[in-house]
Amino acid sequence: MRRKTGLGTKKELDLELNLTPFIDLLSTMVCFLLITAVWIEIGTVEVKQSNGTEAPAEKKESYDLDLVFKDPTALRLNLKKNGKQYKAIDVKSESSEGMLAQLNEAITTQVLKIKDKTVEIATATVTPRSSVNYGQLISTLDVLRKNQIVNIGVLTAKGQ
């Protein structure tokens, strides 16, 4: 027997969304994400102690940079070309913040640009002093990294 179309029980057109499981799921997710959330952002500054190994071998002219701390407000930059001393720049200021600003300027204008040519620094080494604290060493590494000098090593300065 065929059933006539249009007859039978009428279904309601309005659909009611059951919000309870939806709210349950959302509250569980909120709780999980709040517990697993990390509010303190920890990062790293990579230091490669195997000095020189990362430098590309096929480069004709490779420049290396040595930063030697004299005290917290003064340091000396030794730019080396193919292992030989090319240029020495003294950076000095009244405060450590001022010294970092001057270091940034010296790297941008005198190290990375030689005779209007942009040079690439293969490796950089930093020689600290006991009067320089670790926080300042990291700030110095920051200045180097900001100027795309990423192959950085920290030398040991025993007794200095």
Binding site: V47, V132, Y134, A157, Q160
Partner: peptide, 23 residues
Amino acid sequence: ESTTVSMVMAILTSSQFQSIQLA
């Protein structure tokens, strides 16, 4: 002191830990 850190780094380097991530 930064020299203390560099000395520890030297010990790490001598033990083949050459990629040091400073936190």
